[in-house]
Write a protein that binds this DNA or RNA. Structure first.
Lengths: 239, 239
DNA sequence: CGATTCTTTGACTATACTCAACGACAGTGG
DNA sequence: CCACTGTCGTTGAGTATAGTCAAAGAATCG
């Protein structure tokens, strides 16, 4: 078994507890190894795929950090999500055989390319994979509903608090600190995601810092009082 | 072939061009007929499923009109969509084996109950069904991204105009008028979906009426100038 | 027909946006 | 290595948009 092969196999990937192979047994895992056709490196600022581009594959993020965004006909765009290692992107492309959003690397990244016809093929044989794919898509739908709740019924402070808590929770699941994080995106990108202007994002960070909830040094964020942030998101809970 | 059977089969359903059977050939269609275990009637105001309820099935709407909504821990809720005949609901339940939203009938409705394990089983054998299921989930994701764009970067008038155009377009695909519609939901439900207060919805309707874009008689809406509505959604296009 | 729910409209207010200026930082090239 | 450039972030002042509170009228349902 040469070194290169070891590197490519899902069964040996250090993300196997987070990524495509979650919950599969050894035999199923060996079938899933067939999924990954190639790897692809994307430099910071470059796109993994663009709106309108032909859809062929889903991508599992190995390293790096992405944003996805959709663009209205008049040019406005909206960040629809930030994705990190172990997460799957490209699901939007299935329905029309074309991607409907852009995926941009916010830092140098590497992804596993999984041709979708191969996913469907192996899904027919490996029930656990079939169900896992369904769960991944369902999870994305549930996540989107959460974002709608945030955009539709929360105020600026609540949105930013929810955003920080969500980010830090996902980072923690990947072995990072639960109180410290480095933002990979600009204030404008955060604002786009949260439906607010970059100035409002900046002001809200400053307010959190004044109130002692966080420490903000540009993109380095230290969470000082996670409980208080949670109370901001869920005012009711503190009564 | 008795009458009852004719009624239950997808292959004879008048929604087959819109619903689960889209794009299947005769043989595939006959397999899909096995999907629908039963029918279920839901009275207006009643729920098809609730947040937290065990997930077992997807539902194809035969008649009637639904809303789905998610609820935050502090009780705020957000309408995540309005669904009509031929659309599939319940996809949110797959990921955790429990539904994460409520589905409420806004008028008396009938749905086809499709046990999800049966969907997965038949999907393994009928490639076209497998791909169709993937497309349905992907379509929901793309739709959600559109709602995020709406909530995150449009103003009240743009949101309501986009909402009306979307509704009337879907109704038209079902053989209804492209200029007349009856809203099945309250101003408050529209507001929840669009991230605005019911008073703002009402005022915006009144403004559209004053400007001659629509005629509003309670829930009866007559679209007088669809082009102007489109220009409101997409300011750029009119230059 | 009465009760309830829904809708409209008005007056006032709060939140977040706009425009603007300045400061900090990272990357580039002399 | 430092100056330079451009991007990014912060803050202030003034404003617009949508929210809140309130009241009254319309429609619907049992």
């Amino acid at each position: 078994m040469d070194k290169e092969f070891v590197k490519v196999a899902c069964s040996n990937c250090n993300l196997r507890e987070l990524c495509m192979p979650v919950g599969l047994n050894a035999e199923e895992l060996s079938r899933v190894d067939e999924l990954v056709a190639t790897r692809r490196s994307i430099k910071r600022g470059m796109s993994l795929f663009h709106n309108g581009e032909k859809f062929t594959s889903l991508y599992a993020i190995r390293t790096g950090f992405f944003k996805t965004s959709v663009t209205a006909e008049d040019g406005r765009d909206q960040v629809t999500g930030f994705q990190m290692a172990g997460e799957i992107i490209g699901l939007d492309g299935i329905v029309n055989d074309r991607h409907t959003c852009d995926a941009i690397a916010l830092e140098d990244a590497e992804v596993c390319v999984m041709p979708f016809d191969r996913i469907e093929e192996i899904s027919r044989e490996v029930n656990a994979l079939q169900h896992h794919v369904h769960k991944i898509m369902s999870r994305e739908i549930v996540r989107d509903h959460g974002v709608m709740l945030l955009l539709g019924s929360m105020r600026a402070e609540e949105r930013l608090a929810a955003f920080l808590l969500n980010l830090v929770q996902r980072l923690q699941a990947r072995g990072f600190s639960r109180s410290e994080l480095v933002l990979r995106m600009t204030r404008e990108e955060i604002g786009s995601y949260l439906g607010m202007k970059l100035e409002t994002v900046s002001r809200t960070f400053s307010k959190f810092a004044d109130d002692g909830l966080v420490e903000v040094k540009q993109r380095h964020i230290q969470i000082r009082d996670a409980e208080a942030l949670k109370r901001i998101v869920n005012p009711q809970v503190c009564r």
